[in-house]
Design a protein around this nucleic acid. Structure first.
Lengths: 294, 294
DNA sequence: CGACGTCAATAGAAAGGCTCTATTGATAAA
DNA sequence: TTTATCAATAGAGCCTTTCTATTGACGTCG
């Protein structure tokens, strides 16, 4: 039964019987049969199919919800037993939005000090993907802005309030300033994250408030790409202050705080709202709380 | 896997491999093998045994906790699907302490009006047994005093505040009074519930506060037994007021409120602290809340 | 309009797992 | 020491599961 529920979760992820089967390490007929058995055992159609996968029935969606919970609990149980025997082991999977990628280190380093046997997987994803991955039990935690909360499904641990700065070369316009306003920034050509990302939306909002309209000369969904351009001194960008600080600046680049309005958004850890949490996740939350107090 | 967890729950209930097997509808070797498989699959000993069942290991207790949750979720899932298809069906199992047995009717009658297809099982148990049955998923809800709460494991719905009255014949001592005190009641020979029940403990406490010491002429764990004696007019008792009112009084018996202190304890519904609840339980909680508002 | 490609269901065989009966071995009680 | 109780083990039969190979349905592209 539990394996059948795993089949169903895989099918929800892949939306394709063959790929779902591969993900589960079985053949396609096996997965097909498993889903059909689940339907027989529950006495209701779960998946709409017509020569290929279409979607889940309403009842199928409900069963999916339950499956996530049940599978999550069985995994948590196994993990708890393992942790009791060998201490905390296994792999902690975290996804972060690009703007917070450098802060993951602040979590993983103390974590590893306490629990040296734990391995890490860090993914760069957008906020929407992070919540999807959390729902699908594909990751244990996310790091993102806490603005648009999904109450019920996730729990938050606020980490810090982020503010933003203009990165530009000293001899560029505004380059000699100690602080700038969003209105001034709005008039510059910038390297920015692609639209659709949370950080870009935040920056766009501030620029719009200041009556401007962002006209980026270069867009990327990778902070590394933005950073490498900015470091040359030939490009300018708006970055979260912590990220700029972590990455370091070239001599020719200055980080100038943007004020008026003093823009701050809260960055935090997001974990599935399960009680109890898995030991791996619980340990991460503990680290995050400690970090937030500093 | 799920069936193995059921085996484990049965074993926890019965503390005997043979009886647990019978409860699951399998033979003893099958259950033994199932438990052993679970142990192998989790890589840890769950049950201490030496030629017979002894107890669960600490890890076994943890697995039991998880099993209750996982099994509870699978049952809730099945129930939800059934309810979606055929409306609310199945059997709602309620246990109540003797003093609240007559109030169960106030729940079941409106429940049945809304959900005619649901069947009921009502058990008379003491408070400790009720919480055990809730833990073991043997009942869906309990009705008891809400004094000693088990936070975390159960949720409460207060129903009403109970007070007590003296039942005695009109020509007995105190029989002509409009109200009596606990101090006066303490001096009478009474029919009472057996020690160890919540109601008896409450009555004993009030009598002790009044400086008395209950010397019951007759004890029973059945309210019906007490009632049938009291109705003759030859015996006296202390009863929850609602129970006396529901059962009705013989002409020769009077119900006299006991005051000073005005004794009240809250009676309420107790259900497993699961989120979401099973549909059957959720409907009962809805009925209880509505009832509590009257 | 027809050939091809993709996808999921089905058929049938082999393997594996599960559950049973019967028995053993261990322990407690008499 | 004998007996009774209880759980584990042995071994056979059966059921389930999983696989490979194929079919059938549908969409796509020439």
């Amino acid at each position: 039964m539990i394996d059948k529920l795993e089949f169903l979760l895989a099918l929800a992820r892949e939306r394709h019987f063959g790929r779902a089967a591969e993900a589960c390490g079985v053949t396609q007929p096996t997965l097909s049969a498993g889903v059909k058995q689940l339907e027989d055992s529950l006495g209701i159609l779960l998946v709409n199919r017509g020569s290929r996968f279409q979607d889940f029935t309403p009842e199928g969606e409900r069963v999916l919800e339950w499956s996530r919970r049940i599978i999550g609990d069985t995994r948590a149980m196994r993990q708890e037993l393992l942790a009791a025997k060998h201490g905390l082991t296994g792999r902690l999977r975290i996804a972060a939005i690009p703007a917070t990628l450098t802060t993951v280190e602040a979590l993983t380093t103390p974590y590893r000090e306490r629990h040296p046997a734990v391995q890490f997987t860090i993914l760069s994803r957008n906020a929407k993907e992070i919540f999807q991955l959390l729902d699908d039990l594909e990751i244990d935690a996310g790091v993102t802005y806490l603005d648009n909360e999904r109450l019920g499904r996730v729990s938050n641990v606020p980490l810090y309030r982020e503010h933003y700065c203009l990165l530009t070369s000293a001899d560029a316009p505004l380059g000699n300033r100690d602080k700038v306003t969003w209105a001034e920034v709005a008039r510059l050509p910038l390297c920015l994250l692609t639209p659709g990302t949370q950080t870009r939306r935040i920056i766009d909002d501030f620029i719009a408030e200041a009556g401007g309209n962002a006209q980026p000369t270069l867009e990327s969904d990778s902070m590394i790409v933005l950073y490498s351009h900015v470091r040359t001194g030939q490009w300018a960008s708006v970055m979260p202050a912590r990220m700029a600080a972590t990455l370091g600046l070239a001599d020719i680049v200055r980080a100038i705080p943007i004020i008026s309005p003093q823009a701050t958004h809260t960055v935090g850890l997001v974990v599935p709202a399960r009680e109890p949490m898995t030991p791996l996740t619980a340990a991460l939350v503990a680290v995050a709380r400690r970090l937030a107090q500093l």
